[in-house]
Design a protein around this nucleic acid. Structure first.
Lengths: 253, 253
DNA sequence: TAGTGGTCTAGACCACGAC
DNA sequence: TCGTGGTCTAGACCACTAC
């Protein structure tokens, strides 16, 4: 705890607050991360109402303003929803949340929620591109997954992705749902909070053309994505090749 | 001013603070907008140091925390830069700022700053797509601009855009620089703070192929963008057709 | 009506930067 | 050393929601 407050009694440190354990970051960050952990580990479940800011302040032995700052940050990154007069909840686990990084919309500007098929996964030593993308050392292994994403039963995205095997033990033995980021969070306690996409247009090569049922040379949208955790660590590299008939990818700045 | 503060004297209202003038929004928003206006109108110029938060608080007759909140918001949207121990400045007018919405990078992940040529502009009654995109009524006029964006002298983007004539008087008589958003702000006091891009891959048609010096049918990246002011008003619709050899568009979420 | 989040204040100490 | 922004507190009132 900080000693900078002139009003508090320094003798009661660690009598209910969060211990500093060598963590000299500001209080609001420590409270934020402690609350975040409760959400990520499922102690506080989606949809659940959490204690009000007075109670949180008392629990961590900080002022209401500091607790509030932590809660505001968690609201901004989408972990929490707050409503004046009502309370604070963990963000609902809706399709809109599960697919919030799947930024494809149809011609009516409604979000597309895809299905998947032909899922295949293998484990291998990371190649040079994977080591660069995922910041891995020479001996690291990766899990490679390929899928065909479909929309109303028709293939529209050829997907291939790589993730560090060390972070996702046993993943190859699990049933993989369509929404992988959601799966990472629930099963592997890894939350994706940011992505960086490199985008270009490319002609379809022969295998991709067959996979997406288009002619060779058809213009495809290529999206090359790195996904990051809150600590800015890259944990997934994926490439999408998309044939978006009557649809589009949306980017906001 | 608010009456909710138990410590302040209600009789000194409007004796130096910001008047409410029917504006019942929170103080921090009123202070934010007042400061923003000074930046947008050029009263505070890029690179200039502005008064510290105590002085701003005193000027607007609010607490330091309230002034701070306004300053923090302006920092988050890129109007200001703050450095502990040093001070607060209006954001420098660098190429990185001028082209911050031009999100193209080369193969070394360095930002591309384009040139322009073959600029043409006309004024016309808005068509139905323009009325929809820019939220205009039936009689509104628009300025249409077409340009070829070049990189090291070679064309790589075919650009066409529409803006409401009412917001940009005399623009067709002005020398247009490469960075239009910067021009909008400096000359027309309209600041672009957000964009929404719809993205897809399309084959090059004949005129575009000639403009970009590629074969008909070459895959092009198509970016369909609406640009918004801080008040969420759409003020520009632009379409880019891009042939990105050894480059890519970047989107972050 | 009770309880929640939202706004606001006054004032303290700390970390950092310029001199 | 002095001035700046950054953190933190304690406590007030307001606006809204659920009961």
């Amino acid at each position: 705890m900080s000693d900078q407050n002139h009003c508090r009694d320094d003798d009661d440190r660690d009598a209910g607050g969060i211990s500093d354990n060598g963590d000299d970051r500001p209080l609001y960050l420590r409270v934020r991360d402690a609350l975040m952990q409760r959400i990520e580990t499922g102690k506080w479940r989606p949809g659940q109402v959490i204690p009000n800011e007075h109670e949180i302040a008392r629990e961590f032995d900080v002022s209401q303003g500091t607790a509030r700052r932590a809660l505001t940050m968690l609201t901004e990154i989408g972990y929490l929803t707050r409503r004046q007069g009502a309370g604070t909840w963990v963000q609902e686990d809706s399709p809109a949340v599960r697919y919030r990084f799947f930024s494809f919309y149809d011609k009516n500007n409604e979000r597309i929620t895809p299905d998947s098929r032909d899922v295949e996964s293998t484990i291998a030593r990371a190649n040079s591109k994977e080591r660069l993308a995922l910041e891995l050392d020479g001996k690291a292994k990766v899990i490679r997954i390929t899928r065909t994403r479909t929309r109303d039963g028709r293939p529209f995205i050829a997907e291939r992705l790589s993730i560090p095997e060390a972070h996702f033990p046993n993943l190859t033995n699990e049933d993989l749902p369509d929404a992988l980021y959601d799966h990472y969070q629930k099963v592997h306690k890894i939350m994706i909070v940011a992505t960086a996409d490199k985008i270009d247009a490319v002609p379809a090569d022969a295998p991709t053309a067959e996979q997406l049922r288009v002619k060779v040379g058809t213009p495809l949208l290529k999206i090359d994505r790195i996904a990051y955790t809150l600590r800015q660590k890259p944990v997934e590299w994926r490439v999408w090749l998309c044939h978006l008939k009557d649809a589009h990818y949306v980017a906001r700045m």
